[in-house]
Amino acid sequence: MDVLSALSEQFPDHPPTWNDIVIAVIAISWVPLYRTDLEEISWAMAMGGFVAFFVIRGPVANSPIGMRLGSWWKAIGLRGRAVGIILYAVGVWITSQFIYISVTLVSSIVAGGMLAIAVFVFLHVLSAREVSGWV
Score class of each variant (00 low, 15 high):
37 D>R: 10
125 V>N: 01
99 I>E: 12
77 G>Q: 12
13 D>H: 11
105 L>W: 02
64 P>C: 09
18 W>A: 14
99 I>W: 12
20 D>K: 00
92 V>E: 08
73 W>L: 15
123 L>K: 13
81 R>C: 11
60 V>W: 09
87 L>F: 10
11 F>S: 11
119 V>P: 04
86 I>E: 08
13 D>N: 15
11 F>E: 10
7 L>H: 05
112 G>I: 01
123 L>T: 06
65 I>N: 01
81 R>F: 06
67 M>K: 15
60 V>M: 08
24 A>F: 03
81 R>N: 14
119 V>L: 11
73 W>T: 14
113 G>C: 05
115 L>W: 04
38 L>A: 06
131 V>T: 12
101 I>W: 04
106 V>M: 04
81 R>D: 07
107 S>N: 12
5 S>R: 12
103 V>G: 11
121 V>M: 07
45 M>P: 00
107 S>Q: 06
79 R>D: 03
58 G>R: 05
42 S>Q: 08
122 F>G: 14
61 A>C: 06
116 A>N: 08
25 V>G: 08
72 W>F: 11
111 A>D: 02
105 L>V: 13
127 S>D: 06
61 A>W: 01
12 P>L: 14
87 L>P: 01
36 T>W: 02
120 F>T: 09
18 W>R: 13
59 P>F: 11
68 R>T: 12
88 Y>P: 02
50 F>Y: 06
91 G>E: 10
13 D>V: 12
124 H>N: 13
124 H>A: 15
47 M>D: 00
29 S>L: 13
27 A>D: 03
89 A>Y: 05
112 G>R: 03
54 F>W: 12
70 G>Q: 11
28 I>C: 04
31 V>L: 08
83 V>I: 15
34 Y>Q: 13
104 T>A: 15
75 A>I: 00
35 R>S: 09
7 L>K: 02
100 Y>D: 13
128 A>W: 09
110 V>W: 07
93 W>P: 00
52 A>S: 11
88 Y>R: 03
115 L>S: 07
55 V>M: 05
96 S>N: 12
72 W>N: 10
102 S>M: 01
63 S>R: 10
110 V>D: 06
89 A>M: 14
70 G>Y: 03
30 W>L: 11
26 I>W: 04
94 I>D: 13
34 Y>F: 07
97 Q>F: 00
122 F>V: 14
7 L>C: 07
66 G>I: 04
82 A>S: 14
100 Y>P: 02
33 L>T: 08
99 I>C: 02
40 E>K: 13
104 T>C: 08
88 Y>N: 08
64 P>K: 11
7 L>D: 08
34 Y>H: 09
20 D>T: 00
103 V>S: 14
130 E>I: 00
9 E>W: 06
91 G>Q: 12
28 I>K: 01
56 I>C: 14
68 R>P: 02
27 A>L: 07
108 S>V: 08
127 S>R: 10
78 L>F: 13
24 A>V: 07
61 A>F: 05
116 A>I: 05
4 L>I: 08
52 A>D: 00
133 G>K: 02
105 L>A: 15
8 S>P: 01
102 S>L: 05
87 L>M: 15
33 L>E: 06
100 Y>K: 06
49 G>L: 03
5 S>H: 10
